[in-house]
Amino acid sequence: MPLPNTLFNSAFQHQRLNWLLISVIAIMVYLATFAMTIEAALSLLTITWDQSVENHMTVEIPALGDETSMPQPERIKQTLAVLHALPDIQSTAIVPDQETAKLLKPWISDPELAKSLPLPTLIDIEIKPGSFSSAQSIEERLKTVVSDASVDDHASWLSDLLHLIRDLTFLAAFMLFLSGAILFISINLICRAVMATEKDTIELLHTIGATDNDIARHFQHHARRLSWPGALFGFALATLTLGLLSFALKYLPAASNIPAIQWFGLALLTMMVPLVAVIGANLSARFSVLKLLHNMP
């Protein structure tokens, strides 16, 4: 840098301005880290659920069918035979009765009562990737041997939930955008304030032949110097809050059905936030100063 770094020190080292810039960046990084984590966690959840239901369907064979002449094991055997004969079926797996009973747990808490009920037999089927078989077409084939068999497509169960998650992901992305916008506006206002204070110095620098870039570089230097502490403080605070939240989630019964999230990957991703904030502050300072200088003669 050709000019001394201390050129605009008197304005930038003003205690209130220092704290204002550090606080704004800390708050923005805190919110952005939160938004980023929520965004990434929800995206991961969507992908996990999407993958788990994408090629899976469940065949249900009621325990009390209308073909009283045919026992349940025979009905299952015939169903499996039809399924194995279908070219689009990759694999089949009979869901154990205990697992089926667990599905009733929210409604029937007494395990003995659940055991006494005539539980249907569930067969989990995996469709070959790229296959166009629908639940309806498979069901039609099964009904030729077991007339009351039905097929459920998992995707249709989860579609509403996935829509909600996707909406939340957009909301998190919007929060992230908002944090960036507020950061930009704050830096712009701070640059305006400093430029107003240092008007004579800026005019002097122009007079002695400084380019707009020479002047902007000094604002960038101060933006970097002040944004690092703010970014790191905001990130540390957000990490602490997220750590506490994830700890609390373990004790929420409703959270047991949420697939495990790769916290390490998420942590790596969110570590980008303070770095991006510092780069953002740096670029905002440059853009703001160049824009303001452009209006000067």
Binding site: P2, L3, P4, T6, L7, N9, S10, D200, T201, L204, L205, T207, I208, G209, A210, D214
Partner: peptide, 27 residues
């Protein structure tokens, strides 16, 4: 162009040497 102002316009936290050297640093 060299410019001399009535109010000097020296940068207060830079020494006489640093103030006078500014145009050379810019160059």
């Amino acid at each position: 162009i060299g410019v001399i102002f009535q109010d000097f316009r020296l940068i207060p936290h830079l020494s006489a040497l640093e103030n006078a050297a500014l145009p050379l640093r810019l160059a």
